[in-house]
Nucleic acid binder design. Sequence first.
RNA 1: GCGCCCGUAGCUCAGGGGACAGAGCAGCGGACUUCUAAUCCGCUGGCCGCAGGUUCGAAUCCUGCCGGGCGCGCCA
Length: 546
Amino acid sequence: MNLEERVAGVVRTAVREAFGVELDGIHVERPGDAQHGDFATNVALANARTFKRNPREVAQKIADAAEDEALVERVEVAGPGFINFWLSPEVAWDELNGLLREGARYGRQEPSGEPVLLEFVSVNPTGPMHVGHGRQAAYGDSLARIMEAAGRRVSREYYFNDGGNQIRLFGESLAVRYAKSHGGDWPVSDPDALYQGDYTEEISRDLSEKYGGRLLEMDPAEALTEISAFATNWCMSDIKKTLARIGVRFDRYFNEKSLYESGKVAEVVRKLRESGHVYEADGAIWLASSGLGDDKDRVLVKGDGSYTYMAPDVAYHRDKWERGYRSAVDVLGADHAGYPPRIRAGLVALGLPSDFLDVEFVRLVKLLREGEQVKVSKRAGNVVTFDELLDEVGEDVARYFYVRSSHNTEMNFDLDLAIKQSDENPVFYVQYAHARISSIFRRAEIDSETMGETPAAPLAPEERALALELLDFPRVVENAAARREAHPIPTYLETLANRFHQFYTVHRVLVDEEETKQRRLALCAATKTVLRSGLDLLGVSAPERM
RNA sequence: GCGCCCGUAGCUCAGGGGACAGAGCAGCGGACUUCUAAUCCGCUGGCCGCAGGUUCGAAUCCUGCCGGGCGCGCCA
């Protein structure tokens, strides 16, 4: 139980004592202004009408009843009827000692409940990751870490679209390049649709290295299959390499191809037809999705007998269900906004509950260069790759920058500014606090992780502010997980680092007086622990020195 | 046109019913003989897009408008 909940408990008891009423949903918050105490509640304001008294009177009665509680040192009625609480140092130290005992486990819950299947990134293997994908990777991975910390069981999955139209096109693009480099020709239906990026040159070279010119002597259809497979594998390994750079791992890479090979796509189409939600028109097979929450009906099987992407995608999500998951969360780019209703429609037609699939959209990253928007297109090949960005600013800066703002807000990414200002990225502010503390423990020749029990003692204002911020960590993690947001973590870490830097400026840690030194070292050790845990939730390093 | 999302300081963004709206960057002025100045302190800077409504109380909730993004393919 976090501190806020404990305070809410005190309030509940006090209300029962004062008015003989059991109140639910008591709101306790940490006031922005230290003068308003460590915790505050608005129950008197919110319930004055029920008690038929004016808010201040109600507040006073509750405050009187709460005064004797060991948790609080002081209670005060203020403003229009707020009740402000000051935490007792005994409880604060009790909590801090608990934090130090738990160490890296502090703020983490034991895993419980049904597992969630979190799918993210899922970039098509037709090119390198670009800066927009970087945001999805950073958000998705941080979200997974945050949810795990909050006690959710999470499986991370990446879906490789290695079948379908785009892949065929991609294979053709490479076949053209490859043929050209061997003095040959490769006929294509639509030359304008070909992929153009520099990386296609690279893949073509590797293709030549492996096969020489002999792909041109093969049956063209077979050669194309070979080339497509080679190219998609090339991209998959390239993408995995990039993900590894920023510490993003998956429990499973799921290939679209496997759905065809195992017959699951055909099976899902058959089951959909049996469900009665399917009809034929204009030579195609349609899903009557408009009756299942979608805007309109969607084609499932095209006139030429091939599937639209819907068939494998519904099959994929049904497969998630069949593997036993009862909750699936997809992290998608905002340009896929139309996707969930139609997939859900397919799943509902198959008898799955409509709330099985949840989607978080990562809004687009608008790339700016010298204030001008850069239009990116993977096929045209003018993308700024995520690797290039990482080369420029480094992994920590990139990851932190991406999750600092809500995934649900469009992001302007000024490349020049990001590169120029990477040395003033707030991530260093947080990391610096960690490095400073490490330095203190080096100087003291003490291991920060083996701090003994520290007896309760009064806290100076800067110490109190730091302690309260530290003890807020579990609530911040739980909140972020519940809302599926990553950005509260950076916000929190910056506040925590600020509290530490303020404390550090005012109070010297390594003083002669033993008890003071012990108390301040304990605060430092606790801060170091929480900073490290928080940074770890973001996949950002916590350096010992800077 | 319809659907989803977003308009908060010069810039990038927090805050999503409560106390005078916050941070970083930018600008101005201070603080190192001491555990790391990648820090700290102060100042300057806001019709919280606009207009109504709900409420004791609205940046926050509701409605309408304005502005921007994305989506509305037998592409994925």
